[in-house]
């Protein structure tokens, strides 16, 4: 069987923060491939650099060194403006605290990223409705975030993340703020998106139960990625 080229190809990426004269290395020589359709979790102690790595992959932060190629594009060479355009089509971001826009209802929140596409009003609406159906909230379209539970808000946020049909979904502790039942719902949903829609997913989590659901678990410790050979077989 032919192995398809990885959708994410990270080579020798490093990043450090300067605090006065002190240099604080956060990521050191990260090399990582993620195959298309893979569901990968990134684990590690607090402060190990998980969010930083995720942000680099999502194109919302810049590496100091190394290359990050996603779907054939080396995003380390893109300008801010190009990165913004690239993000709008290639990345669906899911946050720990949902980060819905409070003055927009569920449908409008999901419609929001579609404003950057060439879709007509009607098409945007149809896409957003469909996405809300996928996350099983068809009867909450006109609810505002404050009228939804945390789990429901996160489902709306997930709908917002995949409504543009991005190359991959990127989630930073998506269940971190949820109770166990809601967390399981969200994980089920992400597994479905991965299995049924074939979405590549990278998820940062502290929760071993969440990590179990993924194909691949990678560990980050003090900015260094574990050896691939440590990895449990699928």
């Amino acid at each position: 069987m032919q192995v398809p080229p990885p959708i994410v190809r990270i080579r020798d990426v490093s990043k450090a923060y300067k605090r006065g004269t002190q240099i604080l290395p956060v990521l050191q020589n990260i090399t990582l491939d993620i195959a298309e359709g893979e569901f990968m979790t990134l684990m590690g102690p607090s402060g190990s650099g998980k969010s930083t790595l995720l942000n680099l992959i999502a194109g919302i932060d810049k590496a100091d060194r190394g290359t990050i190629t996603i779907g054939g594009t080396d995003i380390t060479t893109l300008s801010e403006t190009e990165l913004a355009a690239w993000r709008s089509t290639s990345i669906g971001f899911i946050f720990q605290f949902y980060n819905l826009i409070p003055v927009l209802n569920a449908l409008e929140n999901v419609e929001l990223p579609l404003l950057l596409t060439g879709l007509s009003r009607k098409e945007r609406r149809q896409h957003a409705e469909m996405a809300l159906q996928v996350v099983n909230l068809p009867d909450r379209m006109d609810h505002y975030p404050s009228e939804l539970s945390g789990g429901q808000q996160q489902r709306v946020a997930i709908a917002r993340a995949f409504v543009t049909d991005p190359l991959m979904l990127v989630a930073d502790e998506p269940t971190g703020d949820l109770d166990r039942v809601s967390a399981k719902d969200i994980l089920d949903l992400m597994c479905r998106l991965n299995a049924e829609l074939g979405k590549t997913i990278i998820m940062v989590t502290h929760d071993p139960r969440a990590a179990e659901r993924a194909h691949v678990i990678r560990n980050l410790d003090k900015g260094v990625l574990d050896n691939v050979s440590d990895q449990a077989p699928l």
Binding site: I60, T81, A84, R87, S88, F93, N99, P102, P113, L116
Partner: peptide
């Protein structure tokens, strides 16, 4: 500010 950051993450400039 938080909402504007979300807008930016979504690709708004």
């Amino acid at each position: 500010t938080g909402e504007y950051v979300v807008f930016k993450t979504l690709g708004f400039r």
